[in-house]
Amino acid sequence: MASLITCPHCGSRPKEEFSIRGEVRSRPEPAAPFETWYRYVYVRDNPKGRQKEYWHHVLGCRRWLVVERDTLTHEVYGVTDAAAYRASEVKEAAE
């Protein structure tokens, strides 16, 4: 991917409409130790292969999306609204 993103709200839209923040990493709890926060802010897995990234449909619905992509082939596996992704992440953490 990367030519077209299938926004869950707007459908297939060109890359030009999006801005990309980078790898998805969970923001730690405020009370987490410094080391955890440092890793959140500065360390990246940077896999060659499957990766989740934050994309923002900035010239569309303005929703943040979690795009799961292959960094080598650019194949897209899925696009989720970031809020839904976060909710599932929180739920997972609770379980």
Binding site: S19, R21, R27, Y54, H56, V58, R62, R63, W64, V66, D81, A82, A83, Y85, R86, A87
Partner: peptide, 18 residues
């Protein structure tokens, strides 16, 4: 202006949707 709006949207949607 644009970046701040995106920044707010990021924190609201991706971090604190609650």
């Amino acid at each position: 202006a644009g970046e701040v709006l995106s920044h707010m949207e990021f924190y609201h949607q991706a971090q604190w949707p609650e």
